[in-house]
Design a protein around this nucleic acid. Structure first.
Lengths: 335, 335
DNA sequence: CCATTTTACGCAATCGTTTGCGTAAATAAT
DNA sequence: ATTATTTACGCAAACGATTGCGTAAAATGG
């Protein structure tokens, strides 16, 4: 028969005529409990299926053995892979990973950060949608030593832990590859102008053009907020006025929206225009015509982020040594 | 200056020369606290950025105001949409949603369920990878009144809450459409044979064939565990021996693995073989040749699941009335 | 054989909240 | 003016676990 109510230490202590503290120590295999008593307690506990109440434990220990990760959208393969890398490391060290998504809403993001702090997560992995100063505000206001590692989109200052891929290099290579294919009028579909990844990818794109002796035309650079409508509007405008011969899309979603819009163009443009974009979608290589992909080492990024975070959690008394890791991305699905 | 340590009730009570209980009541707007005192306390609390410790609250209240959802893989668009539906409802009612993934591992699934119980989540949404009797075992052993709603993959018994899409109908329509297209040798790439969705989809497939006067050939039915390798092996074998003229794939991942394998076949088969499969991938419609898609109302399923769960959580004293909701799926991307 | 250490356990405080109950002072009722 | 009621607050227990400290009994030492 199944008990109606989870069994707790005092249930065991009553049943065995022992004190609660003795039971607790016996279950934790303390040296100050007799071997025989330990066996008694442990066998009884497993018989009645005792499981310590993690809330009570957390309150006492002031840690929760879980870390939180906040991402814009879990369905985005890039972030899903990051989460998998994080789980891989965290689970090995006995930590659980709690996933939150912001759907690119600043309000949600702030609420989640506050909640994570109030629930006393042991650490936080964050790729902020929100602008930097606002994130700083929130971080201050929670008034706690909540260890944070930023990934993908990171603050510019150096007093925090950061894990990114080499966006500049990746954008440089992608753009250079398009140039090698004979393209000269390369449009850049960029993300929001404020955030780190947009800035670095734009820089790489510009550098590649200049390196090839092509001047950077601001008209060919379009910012948008990961929304299909904005990408489509930008693309229509570009097509009407400038007819680029290639597109470089700066993120997963932008890549697909851009690809879709190009495919809807009348021939021969639909098949002539080349597209290269950041994406970790596992099925991107199935598209015809091809979508050339800059693939980030997302799983690895997740692993490293989690390792950095867990390090600062366990060595929290030591002086902090801020880390900044930058990993290479690779260009795939070229011909 | 930011405080080093989160401020707690006793900090406020000392600063204001009040008792902790008075402070607590003042912050909770209790009627037995004077208006002036309330204002004092509230303004001071917000000045020092007081946030109640949710762990302590949970321990006292014996609820946590969050629900857990366990899915095989968050990168799977179907499950990601479900999660979004769940969040939509839960957040509106003041609940947080904690997402876990099993990666189709029974061991992970069981560990997660145990952990969810120990952390005293107020409820659980579950699409079990694990076989039914084993799940029942675990549910018994946690010895708690943890409300559960099953979705997608559900147990066969009627003493639980369930939300699914009409798999039989969807499979019937998909298969019938292939028959209308003139296909007769339709292979079925099915999921693991034990679980509800596989059984129902197979039934719909078979019924459609019989309805059209085509006999069901067991050789054309292949089970697999959502692994690319298995799908590819099955497909190679089918191609060598039976040369089906169409494939019906029974899940998101199976659809893409199957599509990919077919595209690698030598022409003219690659473009002649028609494929229809379950998928909620947002970019499935970009594929050429087409992948016809059975799209499940995932967001809706998530919403309904969450509503059912929150109902049983808040009305837990009332007698339980088990619900079983079945929603229609639609066939898209046909010509 | 007595003094000292070790063994094995219990008592009580603690983590940060909430809440039932008790009680002074203030107000209202008679 | 005396009693009854309300108002506004404090004390202490509780949620379930962990742990420092105290202390009998047992083991050890000289």
């Amino acid at each position: 028969m199944d008990q109606e109510r989870p069994v707790k230490l005092s249930d065991i202590s009553k049943a065995l005529n022992l004190s609660v503290s003795t039971v607790s120590r016996a279950l934790n295999d303390s040296h100050e409990i007799g071997e025989e008593t330990k066996r008694m307690v442990q066998s009884y506990a497993s018989k009645v299926n005792y499981r310590p109440n993690l809330i009570a434990q957390s309150l006492k220990e002031m840690n929760t053995r879980y870390i939180a990760i906040i991402v814009p959208e879990i369905s985005n393969s890039f972030f899903a892979e990051i989460v998998n890398g994080v789980e891989f490391v965290a689970n090995n060290q006995g930590y659980h990973v709690v996933i939150y998504q912001t759907h690119d809403s600043t309000e949600r993001e702030i609420n989640i950060i506050r909640d994570v702090a109030r629930r006393k997560a042991d650490g936080l992995l964050l790729s902020p949608s929100t602008n930097q100063t606002e994130v700083n505000e929130v971080m201050k206001s929670i008034g706690a030593k909540l260890p944070v590692v930023y990934f993908d989109r990171v603050p510019s200052d150096n007093y925090c832990h950061k894990v990114v891929c080499d966006n500049y290099q990746a954008a440089f290579e992608a753009t250079s590859w398009l140039i090698q294919q004979g393209k000269r009028r390369i449009a850049h579909m960029a993300g929001p102008s404020g955030i780190s990844i947009s800035i670095e990818r734009l820089a790489g794109y510009s550098a590649a053009l200049l390196h090839a002796g092509i001047s950077v035309d601001p008209n060919l650079i379009r910012y948008s907020n990961f929304l299909a409508r904005e990408v489509w509007d930008n693309l229509r405008d570009l097509e009407e006025k400038y007819q680029p011969d290639a597109y470089f899309a700066s993120s997963d979603r932008l890549s697909f929206y851009c690809y879709e819009a190009v495919q809807r163009l009348p021939e021969p443009r639909a098949s002539e225009v080349k597209i290269v974009g950041f994406t970790n979608a596992p099925f991107a290589h199935l598209l015809r015509p091809k979508l050339s992909a800059i693939v980030q080492p997302a799983f690895e990024m997740g692993k490293i982020s989690a390792e950095m975070l867990l390090n600062t959690i366990t060595k929290k008394n030591k002086d902090i040594e801020y880390g900044f890791i930058k990993l290479p991305a690779v260009l795939k699905n070229t011909e």
